[in-house]
Computed example of a mutant assay.
Amino acid sequence: MKQLALIGSTASGKSDLALKLAEKYNALILSIDSLSIYKEIDIASAKPTKGELAKIEHFGVDRLNPDENASVMTFIDEYNRICDQAILNDKNVIIVGGSSFYLKSMIEGLSEIPDFSSDTLLKTKEMLCDLSECHKLLSSVDPISMGKIAPSDAYRIEKMLLIYLETQTAPSEWFRTNPPSPIITECPVLHLDIDRTLLRDRIALRTRKMVDAGLIDEVAELERKYGRVPNSMKAIGIIETLEYLDGKISKPELIELVSIHTGQLAKRQQTFNIHQFTLRASASSHELENIADSILKQR
């Protein structure tokens, strides 16, 4: 099994390139995307079409219900599944990442987490009723780690609190004595570079197509079934559509806001990708095809 990771900003064309490479090099695709992982969120996530999913087997797509939470462990499970399948069927693996934070975590590895006792789980649940006090407590024992965590970040505060209560050790000390072990190894990372003006135009066009394809109806149905609390309902494209459904903005304003916010996300993604990965290459789609040939082609 050979593998590579293809990263790039949203709407850059990385999914199309991944499909092309997968067909050419007998590969399965692992999508690392914080919305495509959810069932029923089809238009807002811009996930591959049913035809594309039928043509190339994808992992990391349609695995969770919208009211469940995706985490790096979700994608680790998907990576293990795709590797098992690839080895069994003598295929290659292409990882295509929109949510490249998860990919970075898998390449750098995760520290082992202690087993939490029932007492720890119960005490943590009780303490989390006052999130602000939990943040203050953790800040007093681990100011460096907590300085990077907002007082409103319930997910990360819970994880830190669990570690502290179980081990009676500052979380930073736990991580220091339990260094991370990489999940993904020997995986060249390719970055799809795209002209900013072209990207802006692609984002605007994709946004209009999403609305025309039924984005509003999709979000209305998601809200009916799952409400607005799940993390998936706070994604770009969904949150603006909820504002439209509330009568706060018009349809043209909806399209404009989704385009603007997607463009801002793309800029953050590009900065993260360039600075947080050791890249084999950052190039155009055509150039990356040639580079992929040297990685995936059977010799």
Rank of each mutant, 00 (worst) to 15 (best):
M1R: 07
M1P: 14
I7V: 15
T10F: 00
T10M: 03
G13M: 13
L17D: 08
L17C: 10
K20S: 12
L21T: 13
E23T: 08
A27L: 05
A27N: 06
D33L: 04
I43P: 09
A44R: 04
A44F: 06
K47G: 11
P48S: 09
P48R: 05
D62Y: 04
R63Y: 12
L64P: 05
D67A: 03
S71D: 15
V72I: 12
R81K: 15
D84W: 10
L88A: 15
I94N: 14
G97D: 04
S99Y: 05
F101N: 08
L103H: 11
I107T: 08
I107Y: 11
I107W: 12
E108Y: 02
E112N: 08
E112C: 01
I113V: 06
F116E: 00
K123W: 01
T124W: 01
E133V: 07
K136F: 02
L137I: 14
L138V: 05
D142F: 01
M146P: 03
G147F: 06
K148S: 10
P151V: 04
A154C: 03
A154T: 11
E158F: 01
K159T: 03
K159H: 11
M160N: 13
M160E: 08
L162F: 04
I163E: 00
Y164L: 00
L165Y: 05
L165C: 04
P171S: 07
E173W: 01
R176S: 13
P180R: 09
E186F: 04
C187M: 09
C187N: 14
L190I: 07
D193Q: 14
I194C: 03
D195E: 15
D195I: 10
R196P: 00
L198N: 02
L198A: 10
D201W: 01
A204W: 00
A204E: 10
R206P: 06
D212I: 00
A213N: 11
A213C: 00
L215R: 02
L215H: 01
I216P: 03
D217H: 12
E218D: 02
A220H: 09
E221L: 07
E221H: 05
L222R: 06
Y226L: 03
N231G: 15
I239G: 01
L242C: 13
Y244F: 15
Y244Q: 01
L245G: 03
D246R: 15
K251H: 07
L254K: 05
E256A: 15
I260E: 15
K267V: 08
K267I: 05
N273S: 02
H275D: 11
F277V: 02
L279K: 15
R280V: 02
H286D: 14
E287D: 13
E287R: 08
E289M: 13
N290D: 08
A292P: 13
S294C: 06
L296S: 08
